[in-house]
Simulated scan of single mutants.
Amino acid sequence: MKVVRSKDFKAERAWGATDIANMSGITTRLHWTDQPYKWHVNDGEEVFVVLDGQVDMLYRLNGEEESVLLNAGDIFFASVGTEHVAHPRGEVRVLVVEREGSV
């Protein structure tokens, strides 16, 4: 049993995380950041949930760069092969569900 108060979580560095669960190789982690990540393609699917703050999610679709503003409560699903990068607007907390060891 575990209770996590996401609004109280702050990592020591950008994209620092605390592990919530590992269910048969699928991890759920709470991340804190105030800096962009890097363009990447995950090793599998990824669910990205904004819990606090706003994130500009940039992604490439058919070679074209697109973006969407994610607010608290919004969910971004990156299917296999989706190149993407998250750019927070200030401090954010996000819940990420993905295969263990993914980028």
Rank of each mutant, 00 (worst) to 15 (best):
K2M: 14
R5T: 13
R5G: 04
K7Q: 13
K7C: 09
K7Y: 14
K7A: 13
D8W: 07
K10S: 13
K10D: 10
K10G: 10
A11N: 03
E12P: 01
R13N: 12
R13I: 10
G16T: 04
A17K: 15
A17C: 12
D19M: 03
A21G: 11
S24Q: 10
S24A: 12
T27Q: 06
L30W: 02
W32P: 01
T33R: 02
W39M: 13
H40R: 02
V41G: 02
V41P: 01
N42L: 03
V47R: 10
V47Y: 14
F48L: 14
V49E: 06
V50F: 12
L51F: 03
D52G: 06
D56V: 11
L58P: 03
Y59F: 15
R60L: 03
R60I: 10
L61M: 08
G63V: 10
E64R: 14
E65M: 06
N71G: 02
G73Y: 02
A78M: 04
S79C: 01
V80I: 11
V80E: 10
V85A: 11
A86S: 04
A86W: 06
H87E: 07
G90C: 08
V92A: 05
R93I: 00
R93W: 09
L95N: 01
V96M: 10
V97Q: 09
V97R: 05
E98N: 05
R99F: 01
G101K: 00
S102K: 00
